[in-house]
Design a protein around this nucleic acid. Sequence first.
DNA 1: TATGAATGAGCTTTCATTCAT
DNA 2: TATGAATGAAAGCTCATTCAT
Lengths: 216, 216, 216, 216
Amino acid sequence: MAGGAKARRLPRVVRERQMLDAAVLSFARHGYQAASMDEIAELAGVSKPLVYLYLNSKEELFTAVIRREAGALLGAVAAGVGVGGPEVPPDERLWAGLLAFFTYAAEHPDSWVVLSRQARTQGEPFAGEAARMRDGIVRFVAGLIGEAAAGVEGGGGITPRDVDALAQALVGAAESLAGWANETPGVTAKEAAATLMNFAWAGLGNLMKSERWSPR
Amino acid sequence: MAGGAKARRLPRVVRERQMLDAAVLSFARHGYQAASMDEIAELAGVSKPLVYLYLNSKEELFTAVIRREAGALLGAVAAGVGVGGPEVPPDERLWAGLLAFFTYAAEHPDSWVVLSRQARTQGEPFAGEAARMRDGIVRFVAGLIGEAAAGVEGGGGITPRDVDALAQALVGAAESLAGWANETPGVTAKEAAATLMNFAWAGLGNLMKSERWSPR
Amino acid sequence: MAGGAKARRLPRVVRERQMLDAAVLSFARHGYQAASMDEIAELAGVSKPLVYLYLNSKEELFTAVIRREAGALLGAVAAGVGVGGPEVPPDERLWAGLLAFFTYAAEHPDSWVVLSRQARTQGEPFAGEAARMRDGIVRFVAGLIGEAAAGVEGGGGITPRDVDALAQALVGAAESLAGWANETPGVTAKEAAATLMNFAWAGLGNLMKSERWSPR
Amino acid sequence: MAGGAKARRLPRVVRERQMLDAAVLSFARHGYQAASMDEIAELAGVSKPLVYLYLNSKEELFTAVIRREAGALLGAVAAGVGVGGPEVPPDERLWAGLLAFFTYAAEHPDSWVVLSRQARTQGEPFAGEAARMRDGIVRFVAGLIGEAAAGVEGGGGITPRDVDALAQALVGAAESLAGWANETPGVTAKEAAATLMNFAWAGLGNLMKSERWSPR
DNA sequence: TATGAATGAGCTTTCATTCAT
DNA sequence: TATGAATGAAAGCTCATTCAT
C-alpha cells in the first residue's frame, strides 16, 4: 500500500507546495484571469475548499506564487554569482549570473513564463511584485557595469543614467533570449549566455573606450 | 438637430475606429480578460449590440486591435527605414528603424502595451498574431546584421543561428528600453535609440572581428 | 396571444416591481440569509442577471424592499389618520391609525413579516432602516399621548420618559396583536384595534388621573 | 501539568455548557444563518469536531440553545411568581412575573435576543420551539386576567377571546419594553414593570367595569 | 444604423459536515 | 476525550452574447 497513487491526509506544508506547483502550471498556461481555481485544485489533487483554506483567495495564491518563484530565480542567480567570491571581476560575475539565469529559465519554463509575462501584465499588486524582482536584477547588472566603468581610464564618460539604460537593455536582451532559447530546439543555456556576453560586454567595452556610434 | 452633443448615425468606418480606439485603451489598462465589452462600448460612446454588430465578438475585436496596431507600428518603422532608400548602409537603416520604433512607443503607449504585453500573454490566437509581427521585426534586424556581416572579411565566422540570436537580443533590448523610456521622465526616443546603437552595434562589430568574450 | 401567461420585454419599472414583490415573498418566508437570489429571480419570472442589473446586490435588494414596504405601511397609516383632519381629538386619531395599521398587516402579511421580523434581526444596515420606520410610529403615538396628557388637569404628573415608555408599550402591544390576528382565524382588523383601544386608552386615562398601581 | 492556561479533557457537561454559552453569544450577534460553527467552536475554545460530537448539528445546537434559554427564562419568571404562594391576588402575581421577566432580559440580553428575535424568525422547527415558550407565558397572563375578571361582578362581559387578545397585547407590550429598556440607558427593570402595570392593569380594570372606548 | 431588455454559463468563495487518528 | 485534514454542495455575482424593435 505504501507509495499509493494518491496520498491522503498529508501535512499542511506538503499540500501547500503541491498547490503552488499546480498554480504555477495553471497560471503559466492560461494567465491569472483565465486560470480557474477549479483547475488548480484538480491539478493539485485536492478539493477547492482546501485551496481556499490554505491560500485564502485567488489573489493571495497568485501573490504567493510570484513570491516563491521570484525567490527561486533570484536565489539561483545569487548562488551562481556567489560561487567565485567577491574578488572575481565583473565580467566573470555577469557570465556566472547569466548562466544561472538561462539555466533556471530552461529548467523551470512555467515559472519563467509566470514571472516574465503573466505577473507583469495583471496590474497591481502583481505587476509591482514582479517589478521589484526585476529591479533587483537590473540593479545587480547596473552595479557590474558601473564597476567595469570604474576600472577604465576616465570611465568612458558614462553617466549614471547611461548605466541604467545599458542595464535595462542587457536585461531585456536576456529576457528575449531566454524566451527564444526555450522555444528553439537545441539552444543551451551556455550558448544563450555566450551570445549575450559577446554581444553585450564587447559593446560595453567599446562604449567605455568612448567609441560611440553616431548617425550620418 | 445638426451639431448635437452626440453624433449619431455615423458611417461605419468612423464608428469602427471609435470602437477600436476604445478597445486599445481598455485592453491596455486591464488586459484582454479583465477588459469588459461594457466598458469598451461606453468608452466608444455606443451601445453594446453595435459593437457586436461591427466586430462580432470579443475575440475578433481583440484580433482586430492587434492587427491594426501591429500594422501601425510596422508601418511607422518601415516609413522611418525607407526614407534614405535601399542603398543606405545597414547601421544607418537600423538607426532609422530604432528611432521610428521608440518614437512610436512613446507616442502610442497604450498601443505598445497591448502589442508587447497583453497580446503576447493571452495564448492563441492572440500570441500568434503578436508573434508574427515581432518575427517580422526580428527578421528585419537579422537581415541588417547578416548584411553587415557579409560586408566584413570572413564575416567573423558568424552562423545563421548566431544572427538569429543576436537579432533576438537586440529586439529584446529595444523592447526593454521602450518600457523603461516610457516610465522614466525625460528620456527621449533619440536617447534610447542612441543607447541601443552604441551598446549593440559596437558589440556586433567586435563579434565580426572575431573578438569574442570567453570565461576564465 | 394578448395576455399570454409570460410577458417578455417589459419596461424596467414593471420588472422592478415584480422583482420587489418576489423578494418580499421570499424574504418573508425564509429570512434574508436563507432567501436565495435564484428563488427570487424565479418567483419574479426573470433570470438572475436581470435582478442584479436592476437591483445590484442582495443587500441593496433587501434595502429596497424594506424602504418600499415601510413607505407603504407608513403611507397607509398616515392616510388613515389624515382623514378627519387635524382637529380630531387624539383618541380618535389613534383609533384611525390602529385601524389602518391592522388592516395593512392583515392585507399584506408578507410585508408585515419582513418589516416586523426579518428586517429587525439582520443587523445593520437593515435593522437601522427598520428601526427608523418603527421610531416614526413610536413618535407619532407618543405625540398623541402627550397631547392627551396636556388636555388633562395637571397632566397626571407624566414625564416625557413615561410618555416614551407608554408609546413603546402600546406599539409593542399592537405588533403582538397584529401577529396574533394574522394567525388566528376570524379576527378582524377592527376587532384588534378595538381591543387595543379599550386596553390602552382606558389605562392611559387612569394614569392621567394619577390612579397608579403599586405593589403590596 | 495541572493548572495549565487551557483546561483540557473536561467532563462532558462542562464542555457542553461552554459550547452552549458560545452559541448563545454567536446566535445573538449574527442570527442563526450567519453564525458559523467555526466561530462557535472558537468562542467555546474547542475544535469543531467536538461540537459535532456533543451537539450533532447546527440545527440541534440551536434547538438546544433555545430550550436551555427558554427554560431559564420560564424558570426565572416562575420563581418570581411563586414567592408569595398561590393565594396572592392576580395583580401581585403579574407584578412579580413582570419584575422577574424584565430582570432576566436585562441580565441576559443575548439570551433575550435569541429567544425574542432570532428563534422566531428562522422558520421551523425553531419558531415552533420559541412559540411554545411564548405561549406558556401568554397562557399564564391570560390565566391572571381571567382570574381577575372572575373576581368582578359580571366579569365585564369579557369573552375568552378577549382574554386571549388582552394577554397577547400585554405580552407584546412587555417584549417591546424589554427591548427599549435594554437599549435606553438608566431604565431599570422595576421602572419598566411599573410602567406596564400602570398602563395595563388599570386598562383591564376599566374594561371589567364595562367602560369601553368606542369611536365617534 | 442603433438600442433597451434579457440570459446561459461560469466563476470565486463559503460553510456545515465528516474522516482518520 | 479531542483534533488536523479534507470535502460536497450551494450561493452571490459577472460577463459575453443575443433578441426584438
